[in-house]
C-alpha cells in the first residue's frame, strides 16, 4: 500500500529546504540576466561552482573565517563575470550563451581534474567546511518544529540564513528594477541600440547585470553546499538548465517567480519521485525498476520546459501582456 502521508510530508519539506532557497536565488540571478537584461547566461552552474568551491577551499586550505570565505567566493565570481563579459557582451546574444556554457564547463573540469587534487579533492570533492558556519549558530542545541518541519539547531540555522538571504536579494532586486537603473536594464533587453542612442553605456550596464546575477548564483552555490558536500559532478550543464526551468516556471521577468518557481519545482519533483518510487515498490508499475523511476523526473523536467516555453512563456507570475521573451 502506498504511504501517502510520507509522500506528502517529504514533498512539504522541500518547501523551505535550503536547496529550494539555493535554486530560488540562482534563478533570481538568472532573472536579472535573462528576464530583465536579456542576457543568455548558460553558465549559472559555473557561478554556483565558484561559490561552493570558493567557500570550501578558503575554509579548508586557507583556514579563512566565514565572512572571508564568502568574500573570496564572491570575488571569484566577479572575476569570472568580467572574463566572460569582456569578450562577449559586445557580440550577438547567442555568443554569450555559447561562451558562458563553455566557461562553466571549463570551471567544472578544472575542479574535477586530478591535477589540483590536493586543493579541490578532484572527483571526490570537498567536505568538512561547515564548522565555521555552525559556530555562528545562536540557536541552542535541540530539536524544534512540528510535523514534517522538525529540525535540529543547525538545520534551522541554515534555513533561517538561507531564506533571509533570498528575501533580502528579492527586496534588493525589486528596488533596483523599479529605479532608473532597472529602466535602463529593461530597455537594453528590448533594444540595446535604442538605449545606446539615448546616451547610456550599454556595455557597462550589461556587465553590472552579469556580475550582479552571477553573485546571486555564487551565494546560491554556497547555500547549496551547506547541507551537503561539494561534488564537482553537481555543477554540470544540467544544473543551469534546471535553474532555467525554475525561472521559466515562475516567470522570467519577475521577482517572486524564481522563488515560487523553485518551491513548486522541488515540491512537485519530490512528490513525483516519491509517488513513482512507492508505486514501483507497490507493484503498480510492473514494467519499471526503481532506478528507472528516478529518471522519469528528468524527462518530466525536460517536457515541462518545452511546454512552458510554448504555451505559457510569461510563466506563472509573469504579466500576461508582458510576454517576457517572445518577440
Amino acid at each position: 500500500m502506498i504511504d501517502w502521508g510520507a509522500i506528502f510530508s517529504n514533498a512539504a519539506v522541500e518547501l523551505i529546504s535550503p536547496t529550494t532557497a539555493a535554486y530560488a536565488l540562482a534563478a533570481l540571478g538568472l532573472a536579472v540576466h535573462f528576464g530583465y537584461t536579456g542576457l543568455l547566461n548558460f553558465g549559472q552552474a559555473g557561478f554556483m561552482a565558484l561559490g561552493a568551491y570558493g567557500y570550501a577551499i578558503s575554509t579548508l586550505t586557507f583556514g579563512f573565517p566565514v565572512w572571508a570565505s564568502v568574500l573570496v567566493g564572491i570575488g571569484a565570481s566577479v572575476v569570472f563575470a568580467l572574463i566572460l563579459g569582456i569578450p562577449t557582451l559586445r557580440l550577438r546574444a547567442d555568443y554569450l550563451a555559447i561562451v558562458t556554457i563553455a566557461a562553466a564547463e571549463i570551471v567544472r573540469l578544472l575542479f574535477t581534474t586530478n591535477t589540483f587534487q590536493p586543493v579541490t579533492g578532484s572527483a571526490n570533492g570537498l567536505s568538512g567546511y561547515k564548522g565555521g558556519f555552525a559556530d555562528l549558530n545562536p540557536i541552542p542545541a535541540g530539536t524544534y518544529g512540528f510535523g514534517p518541519f522538525e529540525y535540529n539547531a543547525y538545520d534551522w540555522w541554515l534555513r533561517i540564513v538561507a531564506w533571509t538571504i533570498v528575501i533580502l536579494a528579492c527586496l534588493f532586486t525589486w528596488q533596483i528594477m523599479r529605479s532608473p537603473w532597472g529602466r535602463v536594464i529593461k530597455g537594453i533587453r528590448e533594444d540595446e541600440d535604442a538605449v545606446r542612442a539615448l546616451g547610456k553605456n550599454v556595455y557597462a550596464y550589461k556587465m553590472q547585470s552579469l556580475i550582479l546575477g552571477g553573485v546571486f548564483g555564487t551565494i546560491a552555490g554556497m547555500i547549496f553546499v551547506l547541507p551537503r558536500a561539494v561534488v564537482p559532478s553537481n555543477y554540470q550543464t544540467s544544473l543551469t538548465f534546471f535553474v532555467y526551468a525554475i525561472l521559466l516556471l515562475g516567470g522570467a521577468a519577475t521577482i517572486l517567480g524564481p522563488v515560487i518557481g523553485s518551491m513548486i519545482f522541488w515540491v512537485l519533483l519530490s512528490f513525483f519521485s516519491g509517488f513513482i518510487a512507492r508505486a514501483v515498490e507497490a507493484g503498480w508499475l510492473p514494467f519499471m525498476s526503481s532506478i528507472q523511476a528516478g529518471q522519469l523526473r528528468f524527462i518530466l523536467v525536460g517536457v515541462a520546459i518545452m511546454l512552458i516555453v510554448i504555451y505559457r512563456p510569461q510563466g506563472i507570475f509573469g504579466n500576461k501582456k508582458e510576454l517576457a521573451f517572445v518577440k
Binding site: 528596488q175 533596483i176 529605479s179 537603473w181 529602466r183 535602463v184 529593461k186 530597455g187 539615448l198 547610456k200
Partner: peptide
C-alpha cells in the same frame, strides 16, 4: 518609461544609488 529613459545624467541610473 520610454520617455524617462531619454533624460540625461540621471542619478538613479547608478546601480548603488538606485537602491
Amino acid at each position: 518609461d520610454n520617455m524617462l529613459l531619454g533624460a540625461k545624467a540621471q542619478v538613479g541610473e547608478n546601480l548603488f544609488r538606485a537602491v
